[in-house]
Design a protein around this nucleic acid. Sequence first.
DNA 1: TATGAATGAGCTTTCATTCAT
DNA 2: TATGAATGAAAGCTCATTCAT
Lengths: 234, 234, 234, 234
Amino acid sequence: MASCLTERGRQTRAKLVEAARTVFENCDFRDSRVRDITKEAGVAYGSFYTYFPSKESVVREVGMAVAQEMMVGPDAESGVEADLVGMELEEDSPQARSRRVYDRVLRANRFYLESFARNARLLAAIDQMALYNDELFQIRQDMRRDIGERSRSTIAHWQAEGLVDSELDPAYAGAALGSMVYRFAYTWFTFGGDFELEAAARNLSRLWVQALGMTVETELPPTRHATSAAERCA
Amino acid sequence: MASCLTERGRQTRAKLVEAARTVFENCDFRDSRVRDITKEAGVAYGSFYTYFPSKESVVREVGMAVAQEMMVGPDAESGVEADLVGMELEEDSPQARSRRVYDRVLRANRFYLESFARNARLLAAIDQMALYNDELFQIRQDMRRDIGERSRSTIAHWQAEGLVDSELDPAYAGAALGSMVYRFAYTWFTFGGDFELEAAARNLSRLWVQALGMTVETELPPTRHATSAAERCA
Amino acid sequence: MASCLTERGRQTRAKLVEAARTVFENCDFRDSRVRDITKEAGVAYGSFYTYFPSKESVVREVGMAVAQEMMVGPDAESGVEADLVGMELEEDSPQARSRRVYDRVLRANRFYLESFARNARLLAAIDQMALYNDELFQIRQDMRRDIGERSRSTIAHWQAEGLVDSELDPAYAGAALGSMVYRFAYTWFTFGGDFELEAAARNLSRLWVQALGMTVETELPPTRHATSAAERCA
Amino acid sequence: MASCLTERGRQTRAKLVEAARTVFENCDFRDSRVRDITKEAGVAYGSFYTYFPSKESVVREVGMAVAQEMMVGPDAESGVEADLVGMELEEDSPQARSRRVYDRVLRANRFYLESFARNARLLAAIDQMALYNDELFQIRQDMRRDIGERSRSTIAHWQAEGLVDSELDPAYAGAALGSMVYRFAYTWFTFGGDFELEAAARNLSRLWVQALGMTVETELPPTRHATSAAERCA
DNA sequence: TATGAATGAGCTTTCATTCAT
DNA sequence: TATGAATGAAAGCTCATTCAT
C-alpha cells in the first residue's frame, strides 16, 4: 500500500494519520470531522480522500496502530502475561519464585500504566468504537481471546507448579485480573482520580499476586499510608 | 411531573422510555434516531417531543434509571461494599470472619453479575455515553466517588482489625477490585466469553478476598476444573 | 356568526380574540403560537379550533378590528380629513378659516397620535402582515384608496376656495401629508424617539397646514425651543 | 473575506446574494426558504452554507447593502438633507435662497424616488424585518438617529438665518418631513397608486419647503391639474 | 497529487391541525 | 363545548463524499 505512493504522498498520508490520532484523542470520533483532521494535518480537505476511502478507514488504521502499541512490551490487557512467558523455566524456592513473579508483575504493570497514560483518551475511544464498529469489535475480540488464552495457560502452569491457588479457574482468573488492571487505568485516566503511578503499580501488583494465592513480603511503607492511618483509628 | 399528565399521556411516555432503552441497547445513542424510538414505541414522530424536549433528555432519563437500578442491592461498581457495611460489628475468630466476608462477597458478586447480565448492553451504552455527555459523565463520576469512598473506608476498617493486608492502600485497592468485577462483567457480556455465572461469582470472590490478603478455605471442586486439568499436565 | 354560539361560547371566543391582540402586540404573528394565544386566554389548546378554522383567521379578525378602530374618529391615515368634512360650509375671513383649519388639524392629529400610541405594536404588525397576507393587503389598499379620495377632495375644495396653494395636486398632497403623520407616529412608537405628544401634535399640524400654503399665527413658544436656541447661535 | 475565496467561490457567493435579494423581494424573509434561494441561484442546497453560516446572516448582508445604496447620493430617509449640507454658505436674497433650497430639495427627492422605485420591495422587506431582527433593528435605528440629527441641524441653521419658520422644533420637523417622503414612496411602490415620478417629486418638494414656512414661486401648471379641475367646480 | 467548492441525503426540532375522550 | 394528546409535514443545518481544476 505504502509502496504505491511517492515520497511526498507517504508524508501526506503520515501527517493525516498522525492528525487523526490527535483529533480522536480530543473528541469522540463521531464528533471528529474530516475537516478537523485535514486542518490538524495542514493539508487540503480533498486530500483526505486521496489516501483514505472513508472516515471509517482512518479509524481502523489508527485503532489497529494503538492496539499494536499496547500489545508490544508487556501484555496489552493485563499488563502482565506477555512478560511472564517462559518464567516457569527457572527453578528455585517458592518464596524466591513468588518474589520474582511479583517483580515482573510490578514491572509489567508499571509499563502498562505508563503506556496507558500516554494513550488513555485514544484507548477509551477505541474501546468505545468497538461497540459499533464491526472491524474494531473483531480486533478487540481477537485480542481478548489471545490474551485470555495466554493468561489462562500461564496461570495453569503456575497452578501445576503449586505456585498458585489451585481452586481458581485459570480462565476466569486471567480475565478478571486483566480486567482489574485495565479498568483501573481506564477509570483513573478517563474520569480522574487522586492516584500516583508508582503507588498504583505497587498496589495493583500486590493485589494481582495475592489474588492468585501468592504471598508477598513487606515493602517500604507505601506513600499514602499516612493518610489512611488517621482513618484506621477513627 | 407525571402528575401533570393524563393516564394516556403517562402510558405514551412510558412506552417511549421503554423504547429508548431498547434502542440504546442495540445501537449507540448517537446512531439512535428519534425515529427509531418512536417507531419502536409505536407512536408518531412528533409525540416524542410532547414528552421530551430533546433526544438528549431521554438519555438522561434512561441513564439515571439504569444507574439507580444498579445501585440498589449490592453496590453498583464492585458489587461488594454496599452489602458489607456493618459487618465489622460481629466478633469472632479471623477464620470465621474471613469466611463470612467471603460469603457476603460471593453473594454480592452473584447479585451484581445477574443484574449486569440483564442490563449489559445498556450499561455499556451508558458508560460510553458518559464520554461525551456531560450529564452522564457527572453521574458516573459522582457514583464512582461515592463507591470509591465506601470501598476505601470498608477496607481501612478491615485493615484496622488486622483482617486485611495493611500494606495495601485502601483507596487503590477499592478502586482496583471494583474495576475487576465491573470490567469482567462488562467484557463477558459485551464481547462474549465461555463463562458461567456461578463459577464467575466464585472465582471473582475468591480473587477478591485473597487479593486483600485473606485466606479462603477450599470449596467443592469448581465446575470447569476438569477442562483445565488436561492443560495442567500438558 | 356570533349568533350561533351559546353565551359561554361567545365568552370563550372573545377571550381568544383579546388574547390574540395581546400576543400579536408582543411578538410578530409569525412568532406567535396558537399555544401562546390559548395560554394567554386561559383556555385549552384545542378550543382555539372550536372558534377559528386557522391561525390566519384570527389574524384577519384582529386586523380588521384594529383598522376599524383607527378609522373611527379622526381619519385613520392622516388623522385629519375625516374630521374636516363639512368645514367648507362655514364662511368667514381667510385668516379665521385658516385658524379654524389649524385647530381642527391639531385636534385630529392629537387624537391620532394618542390612538396610535395605544395600538402602535399592533398597527406595525398589521402593516407588516399586509405585505404577505392578501386579505389584509386588500383591506389596507381599500382604506388607502378611500382615505386618499377623501383627502384629495377636501384639499381640492380648499383650493377652489383659495385657501390652499393651487399649485399642488390634491391627490399627491393628501397622500403625502397622510404619510407624514402616519410614519412619524410609526417611527416614534416603534423605534423610539425623544418626543412629546403635545409638541408632536403641534409641530405636525403646523407643518401640515403650512405645507398646503396656509399661514399660521404664532403660538406660545414651543416646549423644546430652548434646546435648539443654543444651536441657532452656534 | 472575499479574498479568502477562489474566483469560482466569489461567483457562487455573489449568485447567492443576488438570489437572496430576488427572493426577499417576492416574499417575506420568514417565508423565504433557503431552498428558494439556492434554487434561484442555481446551486446546490448545501452550497448556501459554504458561504453563510445561517439564513439570518444573508439577510444582514442584503440589508446592509440596500441601506448603503439608499444612503449614498441624497439622504436615505428624507431624500433631502444630505444634499443640502453646506448650502448656507452662499449668500443672497431670501427669495433666491428659497428658490435654491427648493431646487435642491427637488433634485434630492427625484433621486430618492428613483432609487426607491428600484428597491421598493426590498426596502419594504428590510423595514419589516427590522421589527423582529435585532441586527436590522439596530442598523435602522442608527440610520434614523443619524439622519434625524442631520435634518435637525440643517433646519436649525435655516431657522437661525430666518429662512425657516422659527416656531417649529427642528427635531420634529426633520423627522416629520423625512417620514413624509419615505412613506409616500413606500406606499406608492408597495400598494400602488396613480402617480408619476416627476409630479410626485415636485409636489413633495413643494410641500416640504412650504411646510417649513418658505414660499415657492409658481411653476408651470402641473401635469395632472386638468383632472382635478372638474372636481374643483363640482 | 493537491485543492477547495459542490452536492444532497439525513437528522433534529417545530407547530398547525386533527381527533378521541 | 372543552380538553390535551397525537400527528406528520416542513424547515434549517451538517458533513461525508465527489468532482472539476
